[in-house]
């Protein structure tokens, strides 16, 4: 039996959906690769899309899927860690 299509090795979710500010183009400066932090209290939360595991299945989830609700997003260093 074929695996469901959603199970693939490639990461297909788009990640950040909020465009980062355009870096200033200058002939002398090399463009910085550093991604700018844009999350600030009192400012709109940057939207994103990611692959997720939820109640037995894999799906794409966007922060904006939950518009109109209070949301808590919680980053942590890794699965199977101790704290």
């Amino acid at each position: 039996m074929a695996e469901p299509r959603e199970v693939s090795c490639a990461q297909t979710a788009r990640g950040p959906l909020t465009a980062a500010p355009e870096p200033e183009v200058s002939e002398t400066a090399t463009p910085s690769k550093e991604v700018e932090m844009i999350a600030r209290v009192g400012k709109p939360a940057p939207d994103f899309e990611a692959m997720a595991y939820h109640q037995g299945s894999f799906k794409k989830v966007k922060l904006s899927d939950y518009e109109g609700k209070w949301r808590l997003i919680c980053f942590y260093p890794g699965d199977f860690t101790f704290v």
Binding site: P16, T18, A20, V35, E36, M37, I38, A39, R40, V41, G42, K43, P44, A45, P46, F48, L63, S64, E67, G68, K69, W70, R71, L72, I73, C74, F75, Y76, P77, G78, V83
Partner: peptide, 27 residues
């Protein structure tokens, strides 16, 4: 990275949590 919690040396997101209101604003 855009939430300011990605540690490039370790290659992981450090512990960070963000409370977002129904208008999508980080509180």
């Amino acid at each position: 990275a855009i939430y300011g919690v990605y540690d490039e040396e370790a290659g992981v997101d450090i512990r960070g949590r963000f409370l977002i209101d129904p208008d999508g604003v980080i509180q």
